[in-house]
Design a protein around this nucleic acid. Sequence first.
DNA 1: GGACATTTGTGCGTATGTATT
DNA 2: CAATACATACGCACAAATGTC
Lengths: 78, 78
Amino acid sequence: MIDFDGPTPLYVQIADVIEARIRDGELLPDRPIPSENQMVQEFGVARGTARKALELLRARGLVVTVVGRGTFVARSAD
Amino acid sequence: MIDFDGPTPLYVQIADVIEARIRDGELLPDRPIPSENQMVQEFGVARGTARKALELLRARGLVVTVVGRGTFVARSAD
DNA sequence: GGACATTTGTGCGTATGTATT
DNA sequence: CAATACATACGCACAAATGTC
């Protein structure tokens, strides 16, 4: 699922995977996406890498992060 | 007691201290070990660091954690 | 039943250091 | 040098489980 040896940064690949899940309706608006720790588990990366993926998803306007609660699919991203 | 400047991670040092107390019989089987907050006080570290020490002790099979109650010396660890 | 304190679980924000490319 | 990635460590906020009163 993730290419550790390819030229594409891991955090970009992870963000693309999450975006695909939102596009596919696998992750729904106002619902939480995988937490940083869950991404660490699922993708086998460091927390900092998972955080960079979230940062990218926020920049794309796909998710909204609430401190102390988690990151959720943006309502505008259906 | 804890070397904040050395190369050994704080959570490893703390786990080692607790393990020594178990080995010495200072902490007895089925009895609670210091809570996370008590470790924060005693060792002057963040809660996350105390939690990583506990995680290590669980991996070593020395303690067992019960949600809402605390962490106890494993019966098998005398 | 309710209120409260204690303890662990979870999640994110931030900073620093190291290594590799 | 810059970007990527990992590890360590601090902090804050909230939830869940437990126990006591």
